[in-house]
Nucleic acid binder design. Structure first.
Length: 472
RNA sequence: GUCCCCAUCGUCUAGAGGCCCAGGACACUACCCUUUCACGGUAGGUACCGGGGUUCGAAUCCCCGUGGGGACGCCA
């Protein structure tokens, strides 16, 4: 069993507790980010806990995917990862204590019988709930346990009064205990269930602020009741609303819920995703662009929006383009090189990848686009026939031929190339684009490029001569 | 069905009774810059879900309605 640390009772402790049944998606990443930032902001500790009690669905690959995602984003944890499957003896012990104390009891009702009763309650328009058949009570005689049936353990939920908490995002929430039933805390096979493990862990890991998804609001009153039965300190709760897809629909496995690592593959910078996610459902006045450090210094629970937020790819794109513009060249060079090599393109020394990046980084939205543009410098493009037809008219061909003839005689740098372009164009009495466009198309296969003189200067002279000669 | 949550431009949001005939950002449109396209700059249009209250005064507080979401498992 993993040992838990002793900790300062005044220290703020938050946690991120994913269940390893898939990758880390944007919703989970934002929950992790907020939880992490809150701990960082207050000099607290951020705990990572893997909730893998569902043996059938949890996989080591998913654990790794979550770790990879957090690593890519730079969300480091101070403690853990703790695995719930490694804490079974502890849960067992707490359940035994509760059984002994009478705050939990055995229930022998068969699963199909339970389902039958739920159906009936639903049919009668009532909320389906366990009816307390096996719950001990003063003056009540329990039936004798059926032979050969392994019982589940149920928590004895208070049946009167209300459970209330001041949610740090949503405000005060009250739920009547009469709405709750005696939930199962240990299955027939003895394994503890989610709501129970969370309670024991949050308690023993001394979590002070539970920052988690909105979908847990309904679990909160049950967890508080168990915490109180255990005599544990109840943490503060902050429930984050969910993130909807680009189309306003709920994110699901088959609908837009992509792994954060997919954003890496798609050419996004982690700081762009982080900035986007940080601003989604949280605000600091009119500030739109901020670093992780700045976010940590500003982050608070008071400015979290209680309503659901729709993911907007275009704004993410804008942020990514922003960070790309400001990124250091060596960093981009490594990132682009990796992408190029994955495509089987090996950047050579001469058209300098760094120089190519500096010329193009303000023009792209993603690293992949940057790689696309860079690739053209190393692999001869095949300009589309329609582009050639459009820009290589007899008139421009004459101009181009004249220009190419003089290319070997000038110094190979942008200023001289630019001067020759202007001079050639003037001599033929044409406008600049008449020469610039054919050069763009021949050199890159594209109509849109940076200034042609700067572009040409990046290539070795021979490459330019070769690509431009194709037309002659 | 029952319970819970939510509701400002297309989207993310500012706004905690007068500063708001509602501000910022993305997107959009126009213009400028310009060797094309971007980048950058400038300008512009678009929103307080509906109805009742409370108040001298409400986007802000209360109630009802409507709409959206979540939960109701021996899943997490």
């Amino acid at each position: 069993m993993t040992t838990l640390p002793d900790c300062d009772p005044l220290m703020i402790r938050t946690r991120f507790a994913p269940s390893p049944t898939g990758f880390l998606h944007v919703g989970g990443a934002r929950t992790a980010l907020f939880s992490w930032a809150y701990a960082r902001r207050h000099g607290g500790r951020f705990v990572l806990r893997i909730e893998d009690t569902d043996l059938a669905r949890s996989t080591p690959e998913a654990v790794q995917a979550i770790l990879d995602g957090m690593d890519w984003l730079g969300l480091d944890h101070d403690e853990g990862p703790f695995y719930q499957t490694q804490r079974m003896p502890r849960y067992r012990a707490v359940i035994d204590d509760m059984l002994a104390a009478g705050s939990a009891y055995h229930c022998y009702m068969a699963a199909d019988e339970l389902e039958r009763r739920r159906e009936q309650q639903r049919a009668e328009g009532r909320k389906p709930r366990y009816d307390g058949y096996w719950r001990p009570a003063a003056g009540k005689t329990l039936p004798s346990p059926p032979a050969g049936v392994q019982p589940v353990v149920r928590f004895r939920n208070p049946d009167t009064g209300v459970v209330a908490w001041d949610d740090l995002v949503k405000g005060r929430i009250e739920i009547a205990n009469s709405e709750l039933d005696d939930l199962v805390i240990a299955r027939a096979d003895g394994t503890p269930t989610y709501n129970f493990c969370v309670v024991v862990d949050d308690w023993e890991m001394a979590i002070t602020h539970v920052i988690r998804g909105d979908d847990h609001v309904n679990n909160t009153p049950r967890q508080i009741n168990i915490l109180q039965a255990l005599g544990a300190q109840v943490p503060l709760y902050a429930h984050l609303s969910m993130i909807l897809g680009d189309d306003g629909q709920k994110l699901s496995k088959r609908h837009g819920a992509v792994s954060v690592m997919q954003y890496d593959d798609d050419g996004y910078l982690p700081e762009a995703l982080l900035n986007y996610l940080g601003r989604l459902g949280w605000s600091h006045g009119d500030d739109e662009i901020f670093s992780l450090q700045q976010f940590c210094a500003w982050f608070d629970l008071d400015h979290i929006t209680p309503s659901a937020a729709q993911f907007n790819s275009e704004k993410l794109n804008w942020l990514n383009a922003h960070y790309l513009k400001r990124a250091e060249t060596p960093r981009l060079e490594a990132l682009v090189r990796r992408r190029l090599e994955a495509r089987g393109v090996t950047p050579t020394a001469t058209p300098s990848l760094a120089a190519i990046i500096e010329l193009h980084q303000a023009r792209v939205t993603t690293l992949n686009e940057l790689a696309d543009l860079a690739q053209v410098f190393y692999v001869d493009p095949q300009p589309k026939a329609e582009l050639l037809a459009k820009h290589l008219t007899p008139e421009t061909l004459a101009l181009l031929g004249d220009f190419v003839d003089r290319l070997p005689d000038i110094p190979w740098e942008a200023t001289a190339i630019g001067a020759l372009i202007k001079e050639s164009v003037a001599r033929h009495g044409l406008r600049m684009p008449r020469l610039a466009m054919p050069i763009r198309v021949l050199l890159t296969g594209q109509e849109q490029t940076p200034s042609v003189d700067a572009l040409m200067a990046l290539f070795p002279r021979e490459t330019v001569l070769r690509r431009l000669a194709v037309a002659a």
